[in-house]
Amino acid sequence: MKRFRLLLALLLFPCWAALSDPARADVFVVVHRDSPLRELTPSQVSDLYLGRSRSLPGSEAILVIERGQDSSLRASFFRLLNGMSLKQINAYWARLQFSGQVLPPPNFGDSKLLLAAIRSNRLAIGYIDASEADDSVSVVLRLRDTQ
């Protein structure tokens, strides 16, 4: 009986979860200026970032680059791209990563480093806050935050 009380107490343990709301921002998906990719659909980008495909029709293997794991930019990106929350994404990737099926993409927290990586690799793809985009890279998908 005491153990059941303990379980009940744990269940009612005060919630310390941060009820943070992902920051609102447009997100641009960017590639090298000489990339064979010109324009992508949200579905195509979603498949790349969910590890479901490694290439697109007419392209070689694409180097997908992620952002900081728990960053607000990443939260906005997936919310606008396919409606998934970071918690859903983390559970989804836990399945792929720890089964050994697909390893998570490399990630850059810093936008300048990300842009430098995109500029140096013709087959790389990444995403940035729209306000940080410049003409050194090509935008292949614009995710507008209309909320």
Partner: peptide
Amino acid sequence: DVRVGRVGYDAFLMSDIRNVGYAY
């Protein structure tokens, strides 16, 4: 994809993530 060595047993939907409670 080719993997050589010790790999997860993959016959069922969840057979290679049985230990990863966070995934389900």
